[in-house]
Simulated scan of single mutants.
Amino acid sequence: MTRNTVPTLHGDIMTTNTPGTDPAPNPHATEEQVKAALEDTKLAQVLYHDWEAETYDDKWSISYDERCIDYARGRFDAIVPDAKLPYERAMELGCGTGFFLLNLMQSGVAKKGSVTDLSPGMVKVALRNAENLGLDVDGRVADAEKIPYEDNTFDLVVGHAVLHHIPDVELSLREVLRVLKPGGRFVFAGEPSTIGDFYARWLSRATWYATTNLTRLAPLNDWRRPQEELDESSRAAALEAVVDIHTFDPDDLAGIARKAGAAKVETATEEFAAAMLGWPVRTFEAAVPPEKLGWGWARFAFGGWKRLSWLDEKVLRKVVPPKFFYNVMVTGTKPAA
């Protein structure tokens, strides 16, 4: 079975292209397209992520150096501590700018990679990042529910913060298992837990409200982004409510994976105190001019996250139920033939 179509955007309508003619990015959606996207989650996915693609790494402090290599590898090792590395060929589902797969490849997890995303803009940036890093990576614009690769193609499929964007998670995981070789493994990390998403959103909203209102005051006015940038962020936030479809209870996510046909399914969670710092920090960064934030801020943000992550792992994990942690990870394998 082969999937030979990929999504593209023509005006307000999502259609398909044949391989080799992936659509171009559309980073400046019209008001009409945004309005249509509020009723069409896949159109919203394309518009929102095309809009963010060129600035996404800066927004989320993503890098391809030791800091994020260690982070990506840490997520992988936390859920698959005994993997036999390297995998020959890996694919990232919903790759964004390539953060997860490219950093995993740099750490020795896989030799060759493929990046896929519904957003043409994200695939473009991910391939550019891979080229700059000298990694052997190809890419396709792809719907996660119709992955455009042959059966039994990959040894490993990974994703970071992608499952919660996909309308039919079970169907997508069936597709993941289809393109995996028998015995191949999938690893998805960074998925929002139901409880974690609740407190993260409230912290983010409170931070945005406080920052955008306090910076109206004359003494703080030079800490305010131009109004057109704030308005654009607000439009993006409206789409974010459409693109963020799911939250997950760890046990429920494991059940979806098993129902899709996966074997050896396991879940894990992480970030409780660290998430309560991370979300206000990221929201504040989005609300103020980037030139106001220097290395001192970066050291505070990353150092604080690391210290609270240590607290989560060494102390809070022993007393706080797993479902209260923000990030959910899941892994499983394709049953051997």
Rank of each mutant, 00 (worst) to 15 (best):
D22I: 02
P23F: 06
P23N: 10
A24P: 09
A24C: 09
P25Q: 05
P25V: 02
N26A: 10
N26R: 11
N26K: 08
N26F: 06
P27M: 02
P27C: 04
P27Q: 06
H28N: 10
A29V: 00
A29Y: 06
A29T: 01
A29D: 06
T30R: 07
T30F: 08
T30P: 04
E31F: 07
E32A: 15
E32N: 09
E32M: 05
Q33F: 08
Q33A: 12
Q33D: 05
V34L: 15
V34E: 10
K35A: 15
K35Y: 06
K35S: 15
A36G: 06
A36Y: 02
A37I: 13
A37N: 09
L38A: 14
E39D: 14
E39M: 09
D40A: 06
T41D: 08
T41C: 13
T41R: 14
T41Q: 14
T41M: 05
T41F: 06
K42V: 14
K42H: 07
K42D: 15
L43P: 09
A44P: 10
A44T: 08
A44V: 07
V46L: 13
V46C: 12
L47I: 13
Y48L: 12
Y48V: 04
Y48D: 11
H49N: 09
H49T: 07
H49C: 04
H49L: 09
D50M: 04
W51T: 13
W51V: 04
W51P: 03
E52W: 07
A53L: 08
E54A: 12
E54W: 04
E54N: 06
T55P: 02
Y56N: 01
Y56T: 01
D57Y: 01
D58T: 06
D58R: 15
D58A: 13
K59R: 14
K59P: 01
W60R: 11
W60P: 06
W60H: 13
W60A: 09
S61A: 15
S61Q: 10
S61P: 00
S63Q: 10
S63N: 15
S63E: 10
Y64H: 04
Y64A: 02
Y64T: 02
D65E: 15
D65S: 15
E66S: 14
E66P: 02
R67A: 12
R67I: 11
R67N: 09
C68W: 02
C68N: 14
I69F: 03
I69P: 01
I69G: 03
D70C: 10
D70N: 15
D70Q: 13
D70P: 05
Y71Q: 14
A72H: 12
A72I: 08
A72K: 13
R73W: 12
R73T: 11
R73P: 02
G74C: 02
G74D: 01
G74L: 04
R75M: 03
R75Y: 03
R75S: 03
R75F: 05
F76M: 00
D77G: 00
D77I: 01
D77P: 00
D77Y: 00
D77C: 00
A78G: 00
A78L: 04
A78T: 03
I79V: 11
I79R: 07
I79A: 04
